[in-house]
Design a protein around this nucleic acid. Structure first.
Ligand SMILES: [Mn+2]
Ligand SMILES: [Mn+2]
Ligand SMILES: [Zn+2]
Ligand SMILES: [Zn+2]
Lengths: 144, 144
DNA sequence: CATGAGATGATAACGATTTTCATTAGCAAC
DNA sequence: GTTGCTAATGAAAATCGTTATCATCTCATG
């Protein structure tokens, strides 16, 4: 978290952006959360510490964190953008339970490699991808 | 297209739904299009034939086609739901050019199999998945 | 045809996100 | 410190795709 703050500080000065107490509060709150978090969820948490904060500020800053390489947007397909830590959290895909919504982060080196191959086959140079695996987790299956 | 209409007819009577000229027009127009189409795009086309049609009707019927197994929703991640033919168009993934938006439909049996394995590793029973490969197509790369 | 439930079209409502705009406040230079 | 420039903020309005509402219409069946 020290490192992230440092990176953010450098990003701010390099881009002529300003350090504000709102930014610091939102960043700290974001970094403390390990789960994927939406702007509104983060807003609700942040509001407890500073009730005067506006939700537009939370939206704005989450976007900023992404540009600074500290956050990454995750689209779980429910129409709400979530964010996860990006610094020292390398790429991974998501396994999501249709029953309870639980998500597991997964990576499979072979899948990653094969994706590149498929893209090449069609003359594409792969830049990134989104893979979401949907299913039912063990607990949810037991309930039936 | 004959087959699809038949399937749809059966679906309607089996569910006590009615056959209307709007439904027929929207279905025919959808079936004629080979590309992924959004509700609004389809609405614009359909409107030319029947300017009195309402866009809610297009939204409603695309949903209905999906339930009847004739359409499938595709989420390319830009906040607009698109639909593609589902009947005799088995599952596939999408390769999308970041430059020009061109999409290619792809399937890789090994990737499909490995996805199941990954899910199992975490106790999940895979039901479906969404894989979008983003990159730059040959033409777009040449332009630089 | 009469009747009843489904379908339609116009419009309002929705929810997540973005924009606008007046006001506030970093911060670098004096 | 004070000034001045400009970024940042908060509140509210606007956006945009989609869904809900509701009065009216019309399909299907007897
Ligand atoms: Mn994750
Ligand atoms: Mn497709
Ligand atoms: Zn579950
Ligand atoms: Zn291209």
């Amino acid at each position: 978290m020290r490192e992230e703050r440092e990176i953010f500080g450098k990003y701010l000065s390099r881009h002529n952006l300003r350090d504000t107490p709102q930014r610091e509060l939102i960043l700290d709150t974001f970094l403390k959360r390990e789960e994927h978090v939406s702007a509104e969820e983060l807003y609700d948490i942040v509001k407890k510490r500073d009730p005067s904060i506006g939700q537009a500020t939370v939206y704005r800053n989450l976007k900023l964190f992404s540009e600074a390489g500290l956050a990454r947007e995750v689209d779980l397909g429910d129409g709400v953008a979530r964010y996860e830590h990006s610094y020292k959290h390398p790429h991974h895909d998501h396994l999501i339970c249709r029953g309870c919504g639980k998500t597991v982060e997964v990576v499979d080196a072979v899948i990653e490699e094969l994706q590149k191959r498929v893209a090449e086959k069609y003359g594409f140079k792969l830049t990134d991808h989104a893979l979401y695996l949907y299913g039912n987790c063990e607990e949810c299956r037991k309930k039936e």
